[in-house]
Amino acid sequence: MLSAILVMAGIALVLGGVLGWAAIRFRVQEDPLVEKIDAILPQTQCGQCGYPGCKPYAEAISKGDADINRCPPGGEEGVKRLAELLGVEPKPLGEGLEHKPKSVAVIDEALCIGCTLCIQACPVDAIVGAAKQMHTVVADECTGCELCIQPCPVDCIRMEVIHEDIANWKWRYPVIPLKKVA
């Protein structure tokens, strides 16, 4: 018994050591542009751009495969910063990706059957619950990406717009419209 544990621990240690060494020894310098683009993207990993996450979208932008206006959580502001970084003209958000009012998902707890499908869909782990138990959304974590709505078999998730009140009102980002001269 003891020898079995020792052998497995030994194998795991050696492999872990080799992999750790290899990760340092064979580190690949990634395209720095990808890192910069990735830093601008909001990291919601929502997939609304059509790529499986912010990093793949950043890679697609740097390769020129994707347009800069595919990221709704980033909004106009994000597009503007991307345009600045890449030295291209900013453009409005793409078709069907227009800015929506900030909202959170709400689960109708009386209808929820506890299937966990929405938990698997949530990119930010904002839904808590277990199989056959009712689920609920942690409103503070929810990014409003709407990815949980489609997998729900009983359609018990709806998006609720967050209305501005004293508690959550914030100063707007300063927008200084530029006039075109000549």
């Binding site: 492999l15 992999l19 690949v28």
Partner: peptide, 17 residues
């Protein structure tokens, strides 16, 4: 375990070389 380790190592090695 060993196969998983080898695959991981191979991936890093090929990525670099």
């Amino acid at each position: 375990v060993v196969i998983a380790g080898i695959v991981g190592f191979t991936e890093m090695f090929i990525r670099k070389t």
